[in-house]
Design a protein around this nucleic acid. Structure first.
Length: 155
DNA sequence: GCCAACGTTGGC
DNA sequence: GCCAACGTTGGC
């Protein structure tokens, strides 16, 4: 089983939106970055655990945990001209983009802020913390995962 | 709202 | 296949 971190802007789609979904499941659509797509397509498996991170807010940080419940399948929003994620180069034969389904496991009682993570030496290697990192899906090691749960008091 | 960092596009 | 121009991300 692998661990990941996904970012989302709480105004666009936050953990509260996910909490209100039927069965607390959503499809993670709109990913339009090849690196992130490849991670979903090639690496994410059912049962993988994911930190849910709020970006572009004050403060940015980890707010919950979700789990992969369905592996990659075509992202239909790429084929929909009315969608803001429409991609004219996508087609039925070559959907180009994919998504996975994730289910809420838990909302944390508090947010672990980006500052908190930067201040924790054992998290120094996290891809999220790399300078200039913009990738919306990044891997998390088991050690990092456990450290973060400890910092949150969620062990 | 600024802007550094990065990804993508398209002319050549 | 290079690279300048442009668009986006996201912390600050």
């Amino acid at each position: 089983m692998a661990y990941w971190l996904i970012k989302s802007e709480p105004d666009a789609y936050g953990i509260d939106h996910l909490e209100n979904e039927q069965n607390q499941i959503t499809h993670w659509d709109g990913i339009r970055n090849y690196q992130a797509r490849n991670i979903m397509r090639d690496e994410m498996k059912v049962g993988d655990k994911i930190f849910f991170y709020h970006s572009n807010c004050k403060p940015p940080g980890i707010v919950g945990m979700v789990e992969v419940v369905k592996e990659a399948y075509p992202d239909h929003t790429a084929l929909d001209p009315k969608s803001k994620y429409f991609d004219p180069k996508a087609s039925e034969d070559n959907p180009r983009w994919c998504m996975v389904d994730v289910k809420l496991i838990k909302k944390f009682k508090r947010k672990l802020s980006l500052d908190d993570m930067r201040n924790e030496p054992s998290l120094a290697g996290m891809q999220l913390l790399r300078r200039g990192n913009r990738l919306s899906i990044t891997p998390v090691t088991e050690d990092q995962w456990n450290t973060i749960l400890e910092m949150l008091g969620e062990v």
